[in-house]
Write a protein that binds this DNA or RNA. Structure first.
Lengths: 341, 341
DNA sequence: ACAATTTATCTTAACGTTTAAGATAAACTG
DNA sequence: CAGTTTATCTTAAACGTTAAGATAAATTGT
């Protein structure tokens, strides 16, 4: 069977293509009865509306906004923080009648998917420079979330400040040895301790800033915190978190405070602590970062910094849609003081 | 500045558009030196390759394959089973030079995103009939995963059989009262027990089949399993799982065996059991379904049915790409007998 | 009743590509 | 050296829309 198009429909109905097009897009341009007739007949022929590709070519719009994730789709998206962000963005976009497109930042396909969107929200530190370049070149509105790229507006939190704050609080509560379970501090895919010279190597601005916050708080409180007590965790999941936590907690003397760069890491550490028969917070205090839902109902409930990722997403999406892509917004967080510290 | 297009480039270089197009797509159609020149100049002008929308309109292809998720993006994608599937699909598509598009099945936008892909993998029971209809109408290759739609090829597992098998195993191991923590058995967004007449109501074929498997095994073993011992859990997450588990495990007499329709539910149940001071497997045996990674390292390790979602994804993607969209494939699973039962 | 306005529909020209078919010149072939 | 092949490039017609301007019919004001 021949494909049903506007043109085919128009011929079949004996009207012009423009009229059929208007029936779909500009009801005021034709009489109500003709419009109804066209729509009915279109339904009958199984016409599923004007071809989106052609429309997009003609209008230059696609009504899609892309989120450029820093990793693969499956990884980025299984992270609870990313998930919250996506949710926030999705809410706003949906209200605005826009569609959301998730783009993997890991593979180098120069695809339709990349060319189509009307705007981009770049999430996290881009790992693919060519892709970033293409996106910049596109001339479409861009916005960074949880990253900073010169000349591009952004929505961020003050990672340094809140890392400092929670570390300060934790250090005051808990004397003894301190260890940091850090996320993506160096370029290795294995859990390991840092070398002294790697202290400020982190490519991920977020991780670097959080570490700097911890270090500043330790210095301010005159507490020791050397590179050898700072673990690098390559992936933000339970598995790697547990490996690192086990290493850290089986030292002699054992640390009494774990500063964790994410809630997932902290939750992994909690389960290791339990396996080792340690009591939290008596033997060991743990703090996280992010404020994911799971941290509320963990046992013990996790003391952490709540960054409101959904709100971050909503704000970013609204800014992008409003064309406000120059501003650099810094969102407040809150310390959530619970039982783990 | 004027937009850089093939045409503009051609004029600037003094060659025809066809030649520029060929420089990008068919190297054999022009001399190597001219091609090199064109590519260099194109780079210089910041031309990021032929416009994807126009190409797609002309060729009718987009080199994108969509996964039509049954829920919202953020929800579907945070589920570990869905994640595994996506990963498997992504692997195959990437090797084939195709792009992957994640489509929310929850909202009713009739979008570019929906019109563009060259094919669809429908994951889970579609909740949006109009959307499904549009996709079917498109005439593009379709494939179901974890669902069955008449006339559409599919990749599934035998939910009934494996639910039966694991229930049979568990029932033999454990005497006493049995409860089922079921997923999406009825149309309610709250945790509740089933009514007798709701036993076979589940819209989700997967859940219905698993429940039938449990019931058959119970009958076969002459064990009691009434609707009042079957819980409906609306969302596959820790939170709701815990609510249901708490209800089930605070009954008198207390169930000694929990048949859980997903690993996530089972893990939630394990943590409730721990909170209640119950020993697993002495006081209580628990089995799950799915075989997610987390189930290996839980304490105690979870006895479950491993369905290999990544493999399912790979197979589905290969079938779709090969045009094999009529077959109905049933993949084998494995019982993973661990400590929780 | 007639010009002026409004309403309903149509015509035409893009949008930026790809590709089949044709043109031209250079290089072989016997 | 005419005839044929090959290499290289051009022409022109799509692909399915939309937006602006054109046209004809209907309505209005005076």
């Amino acid at each position: 069977m021949p494909k049903v198009t506007l043109k085919a429909l128009a011929k079949h109905l004996g009207v012009s293509v423009a009229t059929v097009s208007n029936a779909f897009n500009r009801p005021d341009q034709l009489s109500a009865e003709l419009r109804k007739h066209i729509l009915q007949e279109s339904e009958k022929l199984g016409f599923s509306g004007p071809n989106a590709t052609a429309r997009s070519l003609r209008t230059g719009r696609s009504d899609m906004i892309a989120i450029l994730l820093s990793d693969t789709l499956e990884y980025s998206v299984s992270d609870p923080v990313a998930n919250q962000l996506i949710k926030g963005i999705a809410e706003v976009l949906q209200d605005a009648g826009k569609d959301m497109l998730l783009l993997s930042g890991a593979k180098a396909v120069h695809s339709t998917a990349e060319a189509l969107p009307d705007g981009f929200i770049i999430y996290g530190s881009p790992k693919n420079p060519e892709q970033l370049e293409r996106v910049k070149q596109s001339g479409k509105p861009l916005l960074c979330v949880d990253c900073n790229l010169s000349g591009i507006g952004s929505v961020n939190i003050d990672n340094y400040q809140y890392a400092y704050d929670i570390a300060e609080y934790a250090l005051q509560k808990q004397p003894g040895k301190v260890a940091v379970l850090g996320l993506r501090l160096i370029d290795s895919d294995r859990v390991c301790r840092l070398q002294q010279h790697e202290l400020y190597d982190a490519n991920e601005a977020i991780s670097r800033r959080r570490l700097e916050g911890y270090l500043a708080a330790a210095t301010q409180q005159q507490r020791e915190l050397n590179a050898e007590q700072i673990w690098h965790i390559p992936v933000n999941n339970h598995h790697y978190a547990q490996i690192a936590a086990r290493e850290a907690l089986t030292q002699h003397p054992r640390p009494t405070l774990l500063l964790c760069m994410s809630d997932r890491i902290a939750l992994g550490a909690i389960s290791v602590a339990r396996q080792l028969g340690l009591n939290i917070p008596q033997d060991l205090r743990i703090v996280g970062f992010d404020g994911i839902e799971e941290a509320e109902r963990s046992y013990p409930a996790l003391t952490t910094v709540a960054q409101h990722s959904d709100e971050k997403g909503r704000i970013a999406a609204r800014m992008l849609l409003a064309g406000n892509t120059a501003e650099n917004v810094l969102l407040p967080c809150e310390l959530r003081l619970r039982d783990s510290c």
